[in-house]
Simulated scan of single mutants.
Amino acid sequence: MDSIADMGGTRGWGPAPAPVPEEPPFAEPWEGRAFALTVLTMGRISGRNLDAFRYALSRLHPVDYLVDGYYGRWRSAAELMLTDSRILAPGAVDARARRLRGEDVVEPDAPDPARPDYRPSAPGSLREVDHGPAFAVGDPVRTRDLHPRGPTKLPGYLGRRPGKVMAVRPPHVLPDTHAVFEGENPQHVYTVAFDSTTLWGPDAEPFTLHADLFESYLETRP
């Protein structure tokens, strides 16, 4: 799906802020709590995985995604995962916050939990497949023009762009299906080189961009 989280390579956002020297891990105490809450929510509470967390981030409202900041997005994604697994009813967090502010609000009843019935087939994300890679180092390839309704890890700015395979990586769980519990579907991964001017036009700063892409994102280029 196309989402606000796919901001990489897009224009109009202005220059990136300069890094802060000796920046602490968390600027405010609540950020550390949001981090811990999300990590606990991902596995032990909601039964969701890392790819499901990233998919939750991509489904946040664009305004909230931009306004809430980094750990604000984590907090909202944790709430969405809890709602997906029916640990929380939709609107329960907002209702509780309003009640704590003194408003006369009825909190929705907690639903019956529906955690995903999923166990990984092996630790981590690397897997084995029973076939060799479809592409080799040096092969000219082109990315597919994918706009699925669900998650994808193909950046929008790379759609239908020509490139060249620079390396073949080990097979990896496919996030597109893993995020929605439709199977691990491991695939070979390739490091593909793209010329900056083919991505952003002749006026772009000249450089080579490398992206690690799943096999199903690529097709042979004549």
Rank of each mutant, 00 (worst) to 15 (best):
R142K: 07
R127P: 04
H147W: 14
G14D: 04
G183D: 06
L126I: 10
D130L: 02
T208D: 03
I45F: 05
P29E: 05
G150L: 10
R160G: 14
L154D: 05
V63Y: 11
D117P: 03
L199A: 04
E182D: 14
E22F: 14
D195N: 11
D195S: 12
W200K: 00
A193Q: 02
L158V: 06
L174I: 01
W200Y: 04
V106F: 01
D104W: 04
G183K: 09
A211R: 14
D68T: 09
R144S: 06
P29Y: 06
F26Q: 02
R119D: 12
E219Y: 05
T197E: 11
S121V: 08
K153S: 15
H131M: 03
L57R: 13
P90S: 03
N185F: 02
R98H: 11
P24M: 01
L209R: 13
A179G: 06
M7Q: 15
V137H: 07
D68Y: 15
S46N: 05
R98D: 12
R161F: 00
E205G: 11
D130I: 00
V39F: 07
E215F: 02
S85C: 05
L218I: 09
G156V: 12
G91S: 00
V173G: 05
L40W: 11
G159K: 14
D212T: 12
A36Y: 11
H131P: 01
M81K: 00
W30D: 07
Y157S: 01
D64H: 10
V192E: 04
A179F: 01
L174N: 11
P170R: 07
T220W: 12
G138R: 03
K164C: 06
E215K: 00
A56Q: 07
G183T: 05
Y65G: 06
P116G: 06
P123V: 00
S3A: 14
P24F: 00
L57M: 13
A36W: 13
V168T: 12
P170D: 04
G159Y: 09
E184S: 07
D2G: 12
L80E: 05
A179D: 02
A34C: 10
V192G: 00
D176T: 13
Y118L: 01
T198S: 15
G124S: 07
L57S: 04
V129I: 06
R101P: 03
G9V: 07
P202M: 00
G12K: 05
D51Q: 12
G14A: 03
A78V: 09
G12D: 09
A77I: 07
G183H: 08
P25F: 01
N49C: 04
A36E: 15
P202E: 08
F26K: 06
Y217C: 15
K164W: 10
G69A: 03
P148C: 06
D2S: 14
V180Q: 10
D112P: 08
V20Y: 01
P24C: 01
V105H: 01
L88Q: 03
D109E: 15
